[in-house]
Amino acid sequence: MDLNLTLFGQMITFALFVWFTKRFVWPVLIKAINDREAKIADGLAAAERGHHELDLSQERAKELLRDAKAKAIDVVEQAHKQATHILEEARLEARTLALRMVSVAEEDIVQAKLAAKMALQKELGVMVVKGAERILKQNISGAINDRLISDLIAEVGVSE
């Protein structure tokens, strides 16, 4: 019941315990607690940031999609336009080519006609002269004959 030497024994024990706690126990565990607190705070901040970033990227993705759609429509339209253009050009080219071919053919026809006419004229002349010669064989000399024929030919050529 009374105070005795135990008092000092207990004081020494107490001092040892406090020293031990301060040296080996308290700082270590408090550090673990504080570290975890910091870690959790960081994690929460990161989660918040991640959330925000997700929102942003979703927004961006939407925007990109919208842009892509618009661009696709543009591309299709342009392709359409170009196709029409090409078709138009091809049509034009074909038409000029056809025209040119027609004109060449026409020229050929004219040439052929001319050549045929010339041949016909010559033949006709010969035939006329032959006919006339046969008719005139009896009465007119050869010299007058030749002159008549060439006059005739010239006349035919002029009349052409």
């Binding site: 207990q10 024990t13 315990f17 270590v28 565990l29 550090k31 673990a32």
Partner: peptide
């Protein structure tokens, strides 16, 4: 008194000590 208090105090402080050594954040 001396023995009981010492046993009790060292038991809990040793527990703390080993926990502190294995403490993880």
């Amino acid at each position: 008194t001396l023995i009981m208090s010492f046993i009790l105090g060292s038991a809990i402080l040793l527990l703390f000590y080993f926990l502190a050594r294995r403490a993880t954040s």
